[in-house]
Structure formats: C-alpha cells, structure tokens
Amino acid sequence: MTVDRVLRIEGLCAKAGDTHILSGIDLEIRPGEVHAVMGPNGSGKSTLSHVLMGRPGYEVTAGSATLDGTDLLTLAPWERAQAGLFLALQHPTEVPGVSLESMLVEAARAGNRDTTGVRESLVAEAERIGFDEKFLDRPVNVDLSGGEKKRNEALQLSVIRPLYAVLDEIDSGLDVDALAAVARRVQDATDETGLGVLVITHFSRLLEVLEPDRVHVLSNGRIHTSGGPELAERLEAEGYVGILGESAAAPEVAVSLGLGEDPFADPLA
C-alpha cells in the first residue's frame, strides 16, 4: 500500500478559551512544496501553527489534520514531532540548563534514530547556516539574539530532518543576512530531502528569498484567497486592505474581545 504523502488540513476549527480563532482551514502541502500563509494580525496565523503542533491552551472543535495519513490531532506534541512535523517558533523559548545537543539526542533516541551522529551533524549544519559553533554548548536559546534564535531553529530543522515544517513568522526580528541564511537552508531542504513547508508570515519580504509555490491569505480564521507567488506581490503592492477589503483586514469580531491594546493578538501567543 502506498501512502499518500501530504500534510492535509481539512475544515480545521479551533478556539482558545471561548474565543473561536480558526473557522475552517483547508490546506494541502505536498513534499517539496512551499506554501505561504499570510494575513493581518489576529487572522489566526500563529494559532494555526500552534494547533498543528498541539500546544496546550487550544481546543480543536472540528476538522482534521493528517501527516502522510497519520492523524496528528490525537497525538501528543512530541509524537507529532516524531511523526515528521516540525514547528519553528516565532519566539523560540529559552530553556536554561538544557543543551541543544542533549535535547536533540533525546529526540533522536525517542525516535529510535542514531544518537551518535547528533554532535557531528550539529557542527556541520551550524557552519552551513552561519550559526556560531560556540552557541552549541550554551543552554538552548539562552542569551541568543533574535537572529541567532531563528538560525538555531533552522539549525534544528536541518538536524532533525522532518517531513514537514511549519515556520511561524520566522522572519520577525531577523536581519537581512540571517533571513537569507535561514530561507536558503529551508529552500535547500525542500530540494534535498523533499521537505514540505508551511511558512506563516506577515510580510512578503521572506517570500523573496523563500519562493512559495502557493500563497494563501488568511482572514478571520479562514483562507480568504489562494494563489501563486503573484498573490504575495499583489499584497506587497495593495496591502491586506486591497485583497480583503476594509472590514476583513480589520475584523470587527476581535474588537468585542476587549483584549486591550491589540485586540487582534493571539491570546496565547
């Protein structure tokens, strides 16, 4: 029996607390493809990435997400990672006292993969991405700059070699060099290992270096419009208002949440 190789998201609905954030997301990402999900603040971009990885605090109310036929939503986060999903976080967490190597060794051990090559692989990939080797012996993400943290995410991605990666606003707070290095590494992985990528971004800047096959514009927890790379260019020129119209670009539903300064912010982000 051949497995249909695809990260398939169908009718995915999710809420955080009493707030409905995703209202029916449909996406299909195949190996080697890069899909960009763009959208204004509060459209549900980060929620989508967190729900896929199973971050506590969200509740899936309808729909499904399968990875090469495996139902992701019934798995614990670490099992989703072992199934081949990777999430690069917008704000990579600092983990004092835990080294990058020990984390990746434990991840490899849990997946019955070779643990002896982890160090070697880290050193080789660090050089490729331009991640200073001296950071390898520091606790995970501790005292790293924003750019270094994102390089670290890309480094882990290339060592873990997942089947599909969700990159959550990996371009935020990144200088041009780091952006190019990270994007190039992800792009290479799509060619070399057939990595399927779901890249979530607010800006089209990232898509100049990481070329998407498909672009989806998210609004109010739904895919509003999908298209080819030209959609990102249109967004760049016209803004979200141009694509979504005034109301969708600034959804009124969020206003009633009373979340303070940024009513559109993901409450768990």
Binding site: R55, W78, A81, L89, T93, V98, E106, A110, Q156, I160
Partner: peptide
C-alpha cells in the same frame, strides 16, 4: 513553554 518547546522537537514529555 519550555516543556512544549522540547516536546515540539520530539522529546517525550
């Protein structure tokens, strides 16, 4: 958050 981060790399809880 730290726990989720490690889990998201494939480390069992």
């Amino acid at each position: 958050d730290q726990l989720f981060y490690l889990e998201s790399r494939g480390v069992p809880t």
